[in-house]
């Protein structure tokens, strides 16, 4: 810990703490891994679900990548409890959620959680697609995998049949959902300690040269084409809500393989009018909610291109599929 600079360790009581409607208990892991289609692997860090018995607060083990999703309903009072051992510092920033300063999870505007537990208290006002990620030494910790999906569902509409799923209040109804967090991995960054570079010295955090391109923790070279958590299987007549999260740092372009999508929301806010498109250019942390209603059976390949932030060159692609039977 003495090796870290410009960190703001603390784990105080939550101001104005009340009993929540829903509680998420997150620990951390610092020794996970992800395997790629070429047989190689890298170290991954992330958050664990302590309530589900995952992980220890000592952070030594592995865990799921992306981290377990947080799913809540508009208007609920939410507690996200983060427990971190004394060896590390991390935060949870609920990206796109706009709580008070203390609950925003940005180290130097509040604190980096260490040697204890901090409970982030917030109440989502707008249904949509978000994600959560660590905001300590963020270039490194987010690249290492410390993020997970965050979905805010609208309150159920009393006029809808039970089980109806909408993207947001009075928004489109969907039957099938995909969460595509597209990210790039530079293995050279994956051997650094959590505090790397904070005291100065060149550890290369200005220069991300990704070699792998992934969708929701699955290699987009080939595995994501068929991985059940990523590729979509639906039947003709169903409606898909694809929640696209740009989880990397370089610009991206997602192409839906010839399908025209209705973009109905972005960054957790409904758009004033539906935007119909076959491709979206996005950049780090943007989210786009896409309604897809194929009109025939078939298979469509969804391709995410990863574009170098300076040259614009395509560094690689990740692909998955929509199968309609």
């Amino acid at each position: 810990m003495s090796d870290a600079c410009y960190v703001y360790p603390d784990a105080p009581a939550t101001p104005g703490r009340v009993t929540p409607d829903v509680l998420f208990r997150r620990g951390i892991y610092m020794n996970g891994s992800m395997s790629f289609d070429d047989g190689k692997s890298v170290t991954i860090w992330g958050f664990t679900d302590l309530a589900a018995g995952q992980g220890q607060d000592d952070g030594m083990g592995g865990g799921s990548f992306p981290s377990p999703a947080i799913r809540v309903t508009e208007g609920q009072i939410v507690h996200t409890e983060l427990t971190v051992g004394m060896m590390w510092m991390h935060t949870i920033h609920h990206h796109g959620i706009e709580p008070s300063e203390e609950n925003d999870g940005v180290g130097h505007f509040s604190w980096d959680v260490t040697n204890g537990t901090y409970t982030y208290q917030w109440r989502p006002s707008s249904a949509g697609t978000y994600f959560y990620h660590c905001h300590t030494n963020t270039p490194l910790h987010a690249e290492m995998g410390m993020y997970g999906g965050l979905i805010v569902d609208p309150k159920p509409d009393p006029n809808d049949p039970a089980g109806t799923r909408r993207a947001f209040a009075n928004g489109p109804i969907y039957d099938v959902e995909a969460i595509w967090a597209a990210d790039e991995i530079d293995p050279a960054w994956h051997n650094l300690p959590w505090y790397a570079g904070t005291c100065g010295g060149d550890v290369g955090l200005n220069n991300l040269n990704p070699k792998y391109f992934i969708i929701s923790g699955v290699d987009g070279a080939s595995s994501a084409l068929t991985h059940p958590g990523v590729a979509v299987d639906m039947t003709l007549g169903q409606t898909l809500l694809a929640r696209y999260i740009c989880a990397g740092f370089h610009p991206q372009k997602i192409d839906f393989g010839g399908l025209t999508v209705d973009v109905v929301a972005s960054d957790g806010r409904p758009l004033p009018a539906v935007w119909q498109t076959q491709a979206i250019e996005a950049h780090s942390a943007e989210r786009y909610d896409c309604i897809i209603k194929p009109t025939t059976t078939g298979t469509w390949t969804v391709t995410v291109q990863f574009l170098h932030w300076r040259t614009g060159a395509v560094m690689g692609t990740a692909r998955t599929r929509i199968n309609v039977t």
Binding site: Y6, F109, P139, E143, G200, L205, N206, S284, W309
Partner: peptide
């Protein structure tokens, strides 16, 4: 309250290859 505006392509949050923030 106090909050940041930062660039989210996080390489831009460094100086000289490190020094986050």
């Amino acid at each position: 309250g106090h909050f940041p505006m930062h660039l989210h392509d996080e390489m831009s949050q460094t100086a000289g290859g490190g020094m986050y923030q």
